[in-house]
Design a protein around this nucleic acid. Structure first.
Length: 603
DNA sequence: CTAGGGTTAG
């Protein structure tokens, strides 16, 4: 490296070789190949070359090998600015924002100078790694070097200060600019909105000399965020041109606000649909408890969507499967997920665990759990709760031990599963030990759902008086779930006095819920107190609400069918009941006596 | 070689 500059300019052969390496690196798709190319580069002595080195680092970054890139970078005696920048970009693209910021600190003592490409990247990395102190230093550095008026730098600064919640500082950057383009305007509008001040965002929007589709969408999203769909819609109708993203924003807004008709309308009317649109539709149905519709839309997406489902799609679909018990579809999604290599995605992995658990195939849930190469608190909670709900209480408890030994800190959700497992096994004493351990060992303050678990634990163990005094000593006001748990226990143990007390509270808390009346009525019925049954029936009629009949769903031939007791809506009703009758006869011939006390006798 | 707007799990 005696005269690198003249070499580059004067040697056309070397220039061709450099170009060759750069194009090889650009098409490189694996680390093995990368190392082969690197060996060639070294034999040509070009590893520190001003053009080849950045290209090499960029390739490392693309393949997620930033450590490898750094090794080379540290050996370059005087990296040029482009080489520094490509390192920063690599860290940023690999979400190693902290590394970018730290490396930027070393640029001070280097020969190369940061340029207008450097600052936006570093400021973004500061914001992303919450290094706001460093961010301000970088701001000073950029100002000193005369980049105050650069719109790229300003945009990143406005974003950073907004993210920090310092909208005044963001506005100062905005105010000091000379020529503000639409991107800078959008950044400051977005800043106000993300600080919760949509009104100021709106004022700036009205002042802006130019508005494009992004600026419109930012403002609309602001209104959607504050659940003001009316103004969002007004703006949406007024904006001069809409792109798919703006349509999707409206779709998701209506879905989040539980307006099924309007989000379906958005989806139907939008001129172009991408994977976000389909995910919005499917996820919208899931958010609104329309799980069959979610699965139907997913099938429609596969057939006519012209887009490839992604991890977001799979999570929404798996969630619908869990809620419906649609195991076949869930399994299909699992195969599909394997084929696109979901393992890196915890959302999908966790959704799969939940799907198998909720569909009753707990072995598969455990298998998926064990195959995850990374687990988070949600993975552990899903499997612990899945085991607990499925009556594998001892497994739930040993999974809990494994969780602790693998260094995962349990949280409130974990303890819901643990307490549930104790309830299942009637482990009253252990339940109380775990309840105490929440606070003592994990500084997790028990929430109302944990108190609910404890009431259930005591109630199902038949300790109704203890359950009642536990409720009376709760640090918070008991809600309907708590009293309903007690009422349920009263049914099991036929305790009328406590049941009447619980119902009284329940009528105060949810006067519209007929299920509570039904529960007490069933207790009277069990004890043959028919006058009381009749009295309650009148009381319930006076509320004007009827209990919705419970409905079951079953997955059959790729679709989900729902049915009620004595349902005759299905087109194959006759054959279904014929089979059912046959099964009953078969069961009776083996000595089975059906328990019909609860059937067709409800109020 | 740079900037502003999207969806996911217990």
């Amino acid at each position: 490296m005696v005269e690198p500059l003249t070499k580059v300019v004067l040697n056309p052969v070397q220039r061709i070789i450099e170009e060759k390496f750069i194009s090889l690196l650009r098409s490189c798709k694996s680390c093995e190949r990368l190392y082969q190319i690197q060996a060639q580069i070294v034999t040509h002595g070009l590893q520190h070359n001003d053009f080849v080195a950045p290209s090499f680092i960029a390739t490392c970054s693309r393949l997620g090998r930033m450590q490898h890139a750094r090794k080379l970078f540290d050996q370059i005696p005087e990296p040029n600015t482009a080489t520094w920048n490509v390192m920063f970009r690599g860290y940023s693209q690999n979400e190693l924002h902290r590394d970018a910021v730290v490396l930027f600190g070393k640029l001070n003592r280097a020969v190369a100078m940061p340029n207008c490409f450097t600052f936006p990247m570093i400021i973004k990395s500061c914001a992303k790694s919450k290094g706001f102190v460093e961010g301000e230093e970088v701001h000073c550095c950029a100002a000193k070097r005369g980049f105050k008026l650069n719109s790229f730098v300003a945009t990143s600064l406005i974003d950073m200060y907004s993210m920090k919640g310092c909208i005044e500082d963001a506005y100062k950057v905005f105010g000091e600019m000379r020529d503000r383009n639409v991107v800078v305007w959008t950044a400051i509008i977005n800043g106000y909105i993300s600080c919760g001040d949509v009104a100021s965002g709106r004022r700036l929007f009205d002042l802006a000399p130019e508005r494009d589709v992004v600026m419109w969408s930012v403002l609309i999203s602001g209104y959607i965020e504050m659940k003001n769909m009316v103004v969002a819609r007004e703006l949406f109708d007024k904006m001069p041109n809409r792109d798919t993203m703006s349509w999707n924003a409206m779709l998701n807004g209506y879905a989040a606000n539980r307006d099924v008709e309007l989000f379906e309308k958005m989806f139907d009317e939008m001129p172009e649909r991408n994977v976000y649109s389909w995910n919005g539709l499917i996820g919208g149905y899931v958010k609104n408890d329309l799980f069959s519709a979610a699965l139907e839309s997913f099938k429609r997406m596969l057939v006519e969507g012209h887009v490839v489902p992604n991890d977001f799609t799979l999570v929404a679909v798996l969630s619908a499967c869990s809620r419906l018990g649609a195991l076949d579809m869930g399994k299909w999604v699992h195969v599909y997920a394997e084929s696109i290599g979901y393992k890196g995605n915890l959302f999908v992995g966790n959704a799969l665990i939940d799907m198998y658990a909720k569909c009753g195939v707990i072995e598969n849930a455990v298998a998926v759990f064990n195959c995850l190469d990374r687990k988070d608190i949600i993975s552990w909670n899903t499997i612990v709760n899945g085991l607990a709900i499925h009556g594998h209480a001892p497994d739930a408890l040993s999974m809990f031990d494994r969780m602790k030994s693998e260094g995962e800190e349990p949280d409130g959700v974990t303890f819901v599963g643990i307490l549930f497992a104790c309830t299942h096994m009637g482990l009253v004493k252990d339940g109380f030990l775990y309840f105490k351990s929440m606070v003592d060992d994990y500084s997790t303050v028990p929430q109302i759902e944990h108190y609910g678990c404890m009431v259930d634990l005591l109630g199902r163990a038949g300790l109704l008086d203890k359950a009642l005094s536990f409720i009376r000593n709760m640090p918070m006001e008991p809600d309907a779930v708590i009293w309903a748990a007690l009422l349920g226990a009263c049914r099991i143990y036929k305790n009328v006095e406590i049941a009447e007390l619980a119902l009284q509270r329940l009528i105060e808390l949810e006067p519209k819920n007929p299920a509570n009346f039904v529960m007490l009525s069933n207790i009277y019925k069990d004890l043959g107190k028919w006058e009381d049954v009749a009295r309650l029936k009148v009381a319930m009629r006076d509320t004007g609400f009827r209990k919705l009949p419970g409905c079951s769903v079953i997955e059959c031939n790729d679709s989900v069918v729902e049915f009620y007791s004595l349902d005759e809506r299905h087109s194959e009703t006759e054959s279904i009941y014929r089979v059912l009758k046959g099964l009953t006869v078969l069961l009776r011939s083996h000595g089975y006596v059906p328990n019909l006390t609860d059937v067709a006798q409800g109020i």
